[in-house]
């Protein structure tokens, strides 16, 4: 993944929320993907920081089609270990 480390660190910094961590992540991401790529990454992070909460707050299930398509890797990457309050 081109700039994968910088993109991941940027996402992690935004969820962590510490200003100095975010500032360092921005510097590194900007150097890796440029100004337009940085703005676009901020937009994506902003969207999913909302979407995740929307899904969790309304108790929507995962579509069967998506569950089947992801069945072989959800456990492997740790998703099944996440808290599940939908029951």
């Amino acid at each position: 993944m081109p700039a994968g480390g910088q993109l991941a660190a940027f996402a992690e910094a935004l969820v962590d929320g510490a200003a100095d961590v975010i500032a360092e992540a921005i510097r590194n991401l900007r150097a890796a993907v440029g100004d337009d790529g940085w703005v676009d990454a901020a937009g994506v992070a902003a969207t999913f920081n909302g979407i995740d909460r929307l899904a969790d707050a309304t108790g929507i299930p995962l579509e069967e089609m998506k569950a089947e398509a992801s069945a072989d890797f959800r456990g492997a990457i740790g998703i099944e270990a996440f808290a599940d309050g939908r029951g």
Binding site: M1, A11, V39, D40, A41, T47, N49, D52, F82, A83
Partner: peptide, 24 residues
Amino acid sequence: PRAITHAQIEFVAGRISALNECRY
């Protein structure tokens, strides 16, 4: 459509969702 690729976009989306421990 963006200055980062589909793959990079979904990588950011996936990392945010994993950090938020969102099962959806």
